[in-house]
Each structure stands twice: as C-alpha cells, then as structure tokens.
Write a protein that binds this DNA or RNA. Sequence first.
RNA 1: GGCUGCGUAGCUCAGUUGGUUAGAGCAGCGGUCUCAUAAUCCGCAGGUCUCCGGUUCGAGUCCGGACGCAGCUACCA
Length: 526
Amino acid sequence: MRDPAVFYITTAIDYPNSRPHIGTAFEKIGADVQARFQRMEGRSVHFLMGNDENTIKVSQRAEELGVEPQAYVDDMARQFQDVWKALEISNDDFIQTSQERHHLGCRKFIQAVYDAGHIDKRAYTGLYCTGCEAFKTDKEIADGKCPNHPNLALKEIAEENYFFRLTDFSDRLLAHYEANPDFIQPESRRNEIISLVKEGLYDVSISRKGFTWGIRVPFDDDQTIYVWFDALLNYITAIGYGTDEERFNRLWPADVHVIGKDITRFHCALWPAMLMAAGLPLPKRIFGHGFVYNKGAKISKSAGTAIDPMEVFRIHGADPFRYYFMKECPFGGDGNYSDERFAEVYNADFANNLGNLYSRTLSMCVRYFGGTLEGAGSIDPTAWRSGLDLDRLVAELRTLIGNFSYSAALLKIWLEILDCFNRYIQSTEPFKLIKTDPEATKVVLVNLAEAMRVVAILIKPFLPSTAETFYRSFNFGDARAWSDVGYADIPNRPTIANLTVTAPLKDGKPTPLFPKIELNPTAVDV
RNA sequence: GGCUGCGUAGCUCAGUUGGUUAGAGCAGCGGUCUCAUAAUCCGCAGGUCUCCGGUUCGAGUCCGGACGCAGCUACCA
C-alpha cells in the first residue's frame, strides 16, 4: 500500500512541434494549483510534466531546420520550461520522452505486455505518401491527396506491425468505471468514455517499421514503438519504472492525470488497459479539462491590435494571467479569452479589489502608526470577520479546490472574504476614528493585517507571488515561515507581540501591485 | 452522417433529487466616503430561462421534436 501522504499528479506531455500555447498553459496552471494546494495540505507532492518527443513530426521538423532531432527537442524542452517557469508552474520533474529513463521503461513495459500475450503481429494497411515517406492518417489527407505532395498518388501499403489487444479489456474497463465513479472526471467525460467502450474498442497498432527516431521494440529490432503506447508510459517511466523500482512503488499509482478533454479516450480506455495488461495498478483519477477559445483575439487580429494571450503574462505578470483563466474558465468546461475581458477582470478583481486592499491597509498602518502596531499580539483580530463563518468557508474551499472547481473557489474568496474585508474598513472607518481614538484605530488595523494574512493563505495555490507579497507585507514570517503555511493555519494567527509593516514603501506609501489597465476609448460609429 | 455536450440578464456564468416573487460577478445608472490604484460602500435597473409540444397540482429543472453553437469520430493541449 502506497503512503497516503504521497500525491502524484501529472499533466499531458506536449508535442514540441510548436511553442506552448494558451491551451497547454491552461492545463499546466490548473494542475499547478492542485499541486500547490496539496502541498499546503501537507501531502508529499510529486508533480510531473514533460514533452512528447518520439513522433515522426519531430524528426521531420528537425530535418527541415537542419539540426539533429535530439538537439531540436532539447532546445524545445528548454523553451517550454522557460514558459512554465515564467507562469510559476511548480513541477518537480520534466520528462523528455527521448531520455534514456523513458526508453528503458518503455522497453521493459512493452516486453512485459508482450510476454503476457496481449500483443501480436498483424498486417496493417494504410495510405502511404512516397513524398513524405510516411503513412497518412485520414486527418492528414485532403481530397484524397497528401497536402504536402498533391501531385503524388497515395499508395495503399500493407505492413507487418504489432497490435495491442485492447478489445480484450472492454469488460474489465467497464467494470472499473462502474466500481470507481470518480475515475473519470468531470461526469460528462465519464459518460462519453463509457459509451465509447460499450460501442466497441479496436485493437491498436503500436509499432512502425523503418524509423530511426523513436524507441526500438525489444523483441523486434526493425520496429519502433508508436506514439500513444510510448507517450502514455511517461507517467511511469518518469518515476522509475524500469530504472528505479523502489521509487516507482513509492509514487505509483498517480492520484490524478490532468489532461485535455480531447485525449480522454487514450487516458481512460487505452491507458488503463495497458496497465492491466502489464499487471500494474491504475491511476486513481483522470481529469479532462476544457478548452480555452480565443474569440476576442481572433476578432481584433484583423484590426491588428490583438495581444497573443501568451504575451499577457509577460506584460501583467503571471498571477493575473493565472487568475483570469482559473476564474473565468471553469476547469472542467470551456472558456474564452479576449483582451477586453482580461482588462475588465483585471481592473475589477485585481486593481480595484485585491491590490487596493493591500494599498489602503498598509498605507493606514504607516500613516497612523509609523508602520508598527505595538501590542498587536494581545488584540483580538477576529472582528473583521464577524458574521462570517470562516471555518465553514475554508472547508468548502478545500472541497472545491480538491475537485478542480477553481472558478467557484475564487468567486467565493472574492465574494465572501475580500468583500467582507472592504466592508469592515467601510463600517469601522479607521480614517475617521484616528482623529478621536488611536487605540480603537489600532485594533481595526490589527484586524486588517490579520485579514491580509488570511487572504494570503487562501490565494496561495492560485496566486503564489501575490500571496507571498501579502504575507510578507507584515512580519508574520517571523513566527511562521511562508513556505510552511497552509489552509490549516488560517484560524491560528501566529503569536507576534508587535506587527510591523515590512512591505517595501516609496514616500511612505506602498507601490500599487496592479496598476489599472487603461481601456482604449472605444471607437464610436457615427 | 454518427456520438456527446451546451443554449438562463448587455457580457461571463450559478441554479442541488422538478416546489414559494429565477441568483451572482462584471459592465450600466443614481447616491456615499476619502485610508486607497477616481478605488470603497449603499442602492437601482436589467431575464416569455432558444422555440414548439408533452408529463405533472407545479418545469430553467423530466420526456419528444425543431433551430443554433461546440467538441469528438481512433496519433493536436
């Protein structure tokens, strides 16, 4: 039995044919929020990401560029990781499927499945383009021709390939879905997969002949392992399958595979069947997230004013970017991006609300008390949240985040915590109170500082930088290190005698964290 | 063509096993405050829940159909 404190989470590995785009980023952010949250809950998290490099397209692309495939994929892997780092993705590992650990694990796996009798050799018939020197799938064919070589006729060629007997696992798969209702999420995806399997699966071709880039089939040197059979295995080869069994047993099975809704079938049908064939345990959960559509940008692109969503975080920072997608696009469903919508959300939720709370709180502490609230430790800091059932709220948030309901969680934090925070200031009016009763004002400000601390913890999984900035704006870290703080710390203020503003100030005022986006006045049609 | 999902306020979405006047945020409008990034706070307005039919004492919620949108249909998140 695996240690229940371990939490192993993965994302889909990406094709390095092009740079990371908004869809891939959406997935990584969603998985990252979960990873960060689980760490805060005290789990020993292992968060894996990677690139899918054993495809024909990689070798073709490398050839076009005149570089070695390995050099090409290494460069792309570096570029991907640069982006993930800029988005504050906290993955613990990044696998490239061209790495030796993956090759060794794949060969061991396919051999095990072969030995167990689930793989056999059959004729594969497909349309072959002599120009590309490759088989073409239906999708790659336009009007019966290869789009790259429209003058050449496609040839129907039969080739001996290895097939995985997926069909044999239909009943066991259905039984597993039945026994484990949470295996596939959200619910709609689960229904789709069940009906897919009920309609009948096909045995799948898992090898190809005559390629040099890729993983050799151990029991047949002429063949390389083909796409999905190789790609899915990254989840186990990355953690030591075939190279470090002790580590593998410590981490497997995965707690959740975070994937796009388009590849649920591979993860929910093929992958479990492969694991069954090899006698390995199945992952506990597979979450198929939705897609982000880029409607607004498409429209404004023609006007030449579009900002590539992937540039947004370079302009406004990773946190507003992360917030936008986690709040505006329900993770299990689809969402949209547009420059206008981004600006609206940013201004309303970041500039006017979150960032402004930071400014007004710190500025009053500095202005009225020189930045130090003496004797804060003996002041009750719960008045700001009177009328709010914080314990209940935190419990709800934990459930929501654990279920990937990020947009609902963020909505709740803004609506119930931040609004409560603002209303407390409004009702106590410390800016008036200071003229008549400095002691009472101090009590209010100690409460505001405490609200800052609570907000910092609540937003930590979503907005790591902002959360840290909030927490470090007072000297809370002297009593409880930021890196250790989790939702369990929310009810317990660390014991600090004097609260001090430690945030950087300029002319006695904090620098606005999120300067408003000035909206271009919309052109008026006359 | 087949399968799946969706269609609720100007925009983005909540609406639990059908049950009282359909909810929220943003945008809009009016007022208020001045600590703060002209932010906050209070209030107002805004919906024949795509359409047609059915089941029911009662339907946004269930059933059938129409229209529209999206995804998948076996190697693109």
